[in-house]
């Protein structure tokens, strides 16, 4: 690992000033579960590391109005154990499937988001929940929909002096149901081969789906929303397994995964449809 200078700002203001001075010559360290591996293997080399781990103002969950605010340093396990996050159940399910207990204790949701990995488990979940992210710099702050944060694998629309300060997740509406499913090479500690998050607003008796949100991860350069499928389901009832499979096939056709060491592109595409089909059956949509 290359030697670096280490900074541990004691307030967000100090951190913002530091990031502004360094302008792209600094890498932010939160939990470090991903960053340290990449530094160690010289996959990335950094001159300056800014450790934000002690910034209490970037830590914790609170509810305000109809939104759950999750500060970026909140760990995956803290989200799993937070009663407040019961209102964002698909995200909670995704957090419970990240890495291993050791990783979930250390790794943060902010890190999972800004890493912008196509396989990041929290990202499809945040997308279907309609989450926004708040970015802040010395120049001011802005809030954007989570999908707009990602410009490519490992790439974000963040400016070089910006930091993620809040993740705003609307609470799930009455009558909304959903799921998060992940396929890995094993249950624990696996990076997603493909993952999918779905939220439906469905009338329990008529089973008519009023509104649907479907996001697939690890199946394209960034998380993708399946808008065509969402529109297809809205206002209709899925009355047979055949119909459900037809819709699942549209997800398969929508994704554009790559082949890599974990799986082939074709397998990923097939499995995105299969995870959707299985999850929808479990929700009792038919």
């Amino acid at each position: 690992m290359k030697e670096f200078d280490y900074f541990r700002p004691s307030s967000l203001d100090e951190c913002l000033k530091l990031l502004d001075q360094m302008r792209g010559r600094a890498r932010i360290l939160a939990g470090g579960t991903d960053l340290l591996v990449r530094l160690k293997h010289d996959m990335i080399r950094e001159d300056n590391i800014v450790d934000i781990g002690r910034l209490d103002e970037l830590h914790g969950v609170h509810v305000d109005g109809g939104d759950v605010h999750i500060a970026p340093l909140t760990t995956h396990n803290e989200i799993v154990e937070s009663g407040l996050c019961d209102e964002v159940p698909v995200l909670k399910k995704a957090c419970a499937q990240v890495g291993s207990p050791q990783i979930r204790n250390r790794g943060t949701i902010g890190g999972n988001v800004v890493n912008a990995s196509p396989a990041g488990d929290t990202i499809p979940a945040l997308s279907v929940h309609g989450a926004h992210v708040k970015l802040k710099s010395i120049d001011g702050e802005r809030t954007i929909p989570i999908e707009e944060l990602f410009t490519g694998p490992g790439r974000t629309a963040m400016r070089d002096n910006e930091i993620l300060v809040d993740i705003v997740v609307p609470t799930i509406a009455n009558g909304e149901i959903g799921f998060f499913k992940k396929l890995g090479q094993r249950n624990a500690m696996a990076i997603s081969i493909v993952n999918i998050a779905v939220i439906l607003s469905m009338n329990r008796s008529s089973k008519i789906i009023e509104r649907a949100a479907v996001a697939v991860g690890s199946a394209a350069p960034t998380v993708i929303r399946c808008i065509e499928v969402e529109n297809l389901m809205a206002g209709s009832r899925i009355d047979s397994a055949e119909r459900l499979w037809e819709i699942a096939m549209k997800i398969r056709d929508r994704v554009s995964p790559i082949s890599d060491v974990r799986a082939s592109a074709r397998y990923r595409a097939e499995m995105s449809a299969n995870l959707f089909y299985e999850g929808m059956l479990e929700l009792g949509v038919i």
């Binding site: 541990r8 470090g32 579960t33 450790d51 291993s100 050791q102 990783i103 250390r106």
Partner: peptide
């Protein structure tokens, strides 16, 4: 494994299990 995937290096930090191989000592 030195990348946080095997758990051999687990220590408790304030009674919570961490993978010490992906934990910066300074942090």
């Amino acid at each position: 494994c030195y990348e946080g995937t095997c758990g051999a290096c687990t220590v408790l930090i304030n009674n919570v299990p961490y993978a010490s191989c992906t934990t910066l000592a300074a942090g």
